[in-house]
Design a protein around this nucleic acid. Structure first.
Lengths: 229, 229
DNA sequence: TCCTAAATGTGACCTAGGTCACTGACCTAA
DNA sequence: TTAGGTCAGTGACCTAGGTCACATTTAGGA
């Protein structure tokens, strides 16, 4: 039954955790679906921010651009992630740009429905706090990394983080299947593409990792970890 | 009447905006006061984060430290500012360190009282949303600046921002009374003390500003603004 | 299967800005 | 008044990492 499936899906979106069936039904009535091609822009920095997005499938990067065209990725959204501004903000202008890195399917909510939802259900407010707090945490780490750590450390940390995310599969504890290009990694770590390529080569030369197309194999996890300090 | 004064003070704290008298009274009953000397630590990165602070007077810097001892300031809190983590967080460990830059007087709230307050009053949740969203906005700008802008641009932006903050006094539109040391500016902008001194000299040489002890005079605002792009 | 475009590796070069090492200017306490 | 501490300015030096240029590999389409 498609109706039930919808509610089933919603139930697994973090921001709707703990919602009752009836609350989910009222959420459902506001949601619309939309698809974006790879490379399409969901919203642009400075625009009026009149929608809330929830990613169903695909990956979205949120980033800022310098006047010389360099990009810094602030966060990468995957399935279940929500991109929402503060409902009470007077300005409502987007502080960054969002681009589909792969084909993307999202649910979205108009600004008015969003405000209505927040006001009518205090659980939403609570969920938003959790969402914002997590984002703050990750922004704070990003600031520290970009400002205080060198690119090699950032890259090693990135690899180890990816390993944690990927380590679900048994028997492949040391394998990362990489869905990011070097360019994407560079933008996320605030570095140049070439620098990332260079350090990957260096780590390979030092027998800490092995680099294959779309894959990284960890050869010496302890060795990598020791580079973080 | 000191009692009334207390409530009067609370009414002007952004996080308690829109609270009724009785709500403020219940807030009041949880708050305790504490003083910190200049240089004292309010809390340290990694510690269990078991208090919420509201600054009454003085200035507090929130920062992270690299393994080599360099600091990056994340934010500077002044009178009325609140420093609170997400009440629902499972971990509750501070992601940064807070230090009194001047003598500081704060109100604080225990973790338990904080959670109780958030649960019993949905306005608090809403205030937290606003607080977090503002912080996200400023973190996001900080990431962009540190990662994509050179130090000179960051410094010019800092000067112009200070000018906005200070421009309340008539007849002194072009004067900034500086309560930050070069070191503090450097930490906030993610640069070295010497680099800040050098660029200040450069701006002075180029007749854009004049630098006096504890003061900066803007000589050519348009000229400064044109350096931002 | 081949062909083109995108993704990657690497060498050469250059510069922003960090670090070190001084000097001088204040300020406060004895 | 002086001595010690903090703050600020500046020169010398060095290096992480950005940019440019090019060769090479990989991956989808037709």
């Amino acid at each position: 039954m498609p109706q039930d499936k919808f509610i089933f899906d919603l139930k697994h979106i973090p921001i709707f955790q703990g919602f009752s069936e009836s609350e989910l039904h009222s959420v459902k009535s506001c949601l619309r679906e939309k698809n974006f091609e790879k490379g399409e822009i969901l919203f642009r920095e400075g625009e009026c921010c009149n929608r809330v997005f929830i990613v169903q499938t695909g990956r979205v990067k949120i980033f800022r651009t310098s006047s010389q065209g360099r990009e810094q990725t602030l966060e990468t959204l995957g399935a279940g992630d929500t991109c929402a501004c503060n409902p009470g903000s007077s300005t409502w202008s987007c502080s960054a740009t969002a681009e589909a890195v792969t084909p993307v399917r999202v649910w979205f909510l108009s600004r008015d429905d969003y405000i209505r939802m927040v006001n009518s259900n205090s659980k939403v407010s609570h969920s938003l706090n959790v969402l914002f707090a997590k984002r703050l945490q990750s922004f704070s780490s990003l600031i520290e990394e970009v400002s205080l750590k060198d690119v090699k450390k950032r890259l090693v940390k990135f690899i180890l983080d990816m390993l944690d995310v990927n380590s679900s599969r048994r028997g492949e504890e040391n394998l990362i299947s990489l869905s990011f290009t070097r360019e994407e990694i560079a933008q996320r770590l605030g570095a140049a593409r070439e620098t990332i390529a260079r350090y990957l080569s260096e780590l390979k030369r030092d027998k800490l990792i092995d680099v294959k197309p779309k894959q990284i194999v960890i050869l010496n996890k302890k060795g990598l970890e020791s580079l973080l300090f």
